[in-house]
Structures are given as structure tokens and as C-alpha cells.
Amino acid sequence: MPVLDAAGRSSAITGAANGIGAEVARALARRGARLALIDRDRAGLNRLAEELRASGAEVTVHPVDLRDDAAVAAAGAEIEAAHPQLQTLITCAGSSMLGSLDQLTMEEMRWLMDINLWGTVSITKALLPSLRRSPAAHITHIASIYALASPGGRIPYAMTKFAVRAFSEALMHELEGSSVSVGAVYPAGVRTGIILHGRYAAAIDPGVAGRAAAAQAAMYHMEPSEAAERIVRATLRRRPRTLIGRETRLVDALVRLAPVRYWGPMRRPLREAIDTTTPMSPRRSEAVTPPRRGSAPTPG
């Protein structure tokens, strides 16, 4: 399978306005790629596009809510017109959700599934015709360490990421023998705002949600720029499976060794991050800033 060269070739990135998506765009721009930037955050896209154009990159921006299938199809047509032979698609858009099954509503869980899974499926389907026209192309879906092992307290997020993993693997098999290859990337904790700017169940006390989100964020050690470099390298090398971070490799090994009992060793380091029920002390609650509640943040 030939290795891809980004220079002069087109790449589409979802969740490009911030976080890992923005760093992936910067890493591809340094390699001379032409870029189609996709995100719901129009202002963030325009800021990044201005930055990249100042460095000499060719960039198109495509503001779209990935939950809107019709809007995604229209954006796909725009991208196809601007980038007739798309070489790579990297789906970085996503959000998070805190809460136990007792605390979560069906609407809250469906909201996350619409972003993390169906948004990924929709943009992939929309851009696949353009990818097929390239002599060689690759699709990279960003999964998660929680697509390898499911922690308590993260049911919606783990469901969406396991589903992204299943979609990636099934699509890889479906496209076998074609010019388009598919891979999934499994990062551990990356220092983005996903957990702090995600959403939490309306039934959770805001201070408790903030404490849990802060505990999760404290476990994130990798800088987005480092994760992005590894994602871009995996994409250009057309790797089907990429583990990023020491924790991911450990969890992958743990699940293989103890596919039923892996939660025992995982539970202790996650205990504060998954605790959305223990009340806050008054003094500590004043120092905690909760993530968003109720209204949906910008995916990605």
C-alpha cells in the first residue's frame, strides 16, 4: 500500500476550529497540504484559516453542524467542488457527556451519539465519492481509549466511541481492494477542552460535575500538537490501527489479558473522574467551575 504525500494534495478535517482538529490542520499545512476545514464554529474556522493562509496554505472553510444530514451533504458537495480528488479525511469532531445511566436522559445520550457517531458517518459518506477519485486515499476516524475499554460513568461516550471503532473496521473491510483505506486512532488523555467544555447530565449538581471533569482533565498529559503529529503520520502511512499514549497501550494489553475483569484495575485511577453523586463540601464547591449544562457546546 503506497504511503501518501500531503504536499499539494487535499485533506478534509472535522472539528478543525480547535483542539486536536486545529492541530491536525496545522500539521498538514506544514506538509504543504490543501485543506478543507469543517466545524460548527464559523468564527473559529475563520481564525484558523486566516492563520494558515498567512503561512501560505490553501484553505477552504465549511461551517456545518454535523448533526444536520442535509447540511453535511451540502458541505460535501462544496468540498468536492473545491477539492475534486480528496486524499485524506480525518474526523476529529466530538464532544463528551458526564453522568451515570440513572442520571442521564435518553435525549442527552442521543445528543452525543448524533455528534460522535452519526456526524462521523455522515461526513464520511458525503466525502467518499471524492476520496474514491483519488489514486490513493485514506480515512482516519478518531476513536478513544474508551473504544477499547468501557468505564463506568462514561456510558454515552464509550458507546459512541465503540460505535466509531465498529464503523471504521466495517468500512475498512467494505473498501478492501479499493483505492481508499481506513484506519482508527485511539488516543489516551489529550489536553484539549473536550471534558471541560462538554456536557453533563442535567440531574447532576454543577459542582459535582465540575469536580469530576477536573479530575478527568488532570489525567490528560499529551499536548494536542503531539497527538496531531501522530495522527497525521498514521494517516499518511495509511495505518489501520494506531494507539496513542502509554495509557492506551496498557489498557489495550489489559483488555486482551482480562476481557471480563479489566474494570477492576481501571476503577481506582478513575474513581474521582466517574464520581457524579458524592456531594461537594461548601468550601471546595466555590473553587470548581463546572462544564456546560443543558445547552449543547460546539462539537469538536
Rank of each mutant, 00 (worst) to 15 (best):
A6E: 02
A49L: 04
G245R: 01
E174R: 00
E286D: 12
I20Y: 13
L254T: 06
P290L: 00
A82H: 03
R42I: 01
I115D: 03
I115H: 09
T120M: 06
Q85T: 07
T60K: 09
S225G: 14
P265Q: 03
S225E: 13
L257H: 11
E226R: 14
R267H: 15
T278Y: 08
A227C: 12
G32P: 04
A227R: 02
L236N: 11
R26H: 11
A73D: 11
P135M: 02
L243I: 05
R233K: 12
T14F: 09
S150F: 10
R199M: 05
E78L: 05
T276F: 05
T91H: 14
G183E: 10
A158I: 09
E107S: 09
A136N: 08
A126S: 13
I20M: 15
G19H: 04
H173D: 15
A17R: 03
R34G: 07
R261A: 15
A258S: 14
E229H: 10
R293Y: 11
I195Y: 10
G183Y: 13
A213D: 10
E229R: 08
S55P: 15
E51R: 07
G99V: 00
A143M: 09
A166D: 05
P259K: 01
A143I: 04
R40C: 08
G76W: 00
V72L: 01
I142M: 15
R284D: 09
M97E: 00
M106Q: 14
V260G: 11
L243H: 07
A93I: 02
S179N: 13
A93K: 01
R238G: 11
R154E: 03
R53I: 04
R230F: 06
G153N: 02
A201L: 09
G177V: 05
A71N: 05
S179Y: 06
L148F: 03
M222G: 05
I142R: 06
A218Y: 04
D68L: 09
V190F: 05
R284Q: 12
T124L: 02
R284M: 12
S144R: 10
V260Q: 15
L270F: 05
M222V: 10
R199W: 03
A258F: 15
S122Q: 02
R154T: 08
M97N: 02
P279A: 10
A296S: 13
T298D: 09
A258K: 14
L45C: 09
G76Y: 00
P259Q: 07
S285W: 11
A73F: 08
D69H: 13
G294I: 01
L236A: 14
P151L: 00
R238N: 08
H141M: 12
R239V: 04
I274S: 09
L148C: 07
A234T: 07
S130N: 01
V208S: 03
H173A: 15
A253I: 12
R110N: 05
E226T: 12
M109Q: 14
R53H: 04
M280G: 11
V180L: 01
A73L: 12
A6N: 02
G300W: 01
I204C: 09
R132Q: 06
V180R: 00
R42Q: 10
S10T: 06
L270P: 04
M97D: 00
V288I: 14
A75K: 04
M109H: 09
E58R: 10
G56C: 07
P187V: 02
R34M: 07
R133C: 07
R110M: 10
M97S: 07
R34H: 13
V288N: 08
E229D: 14
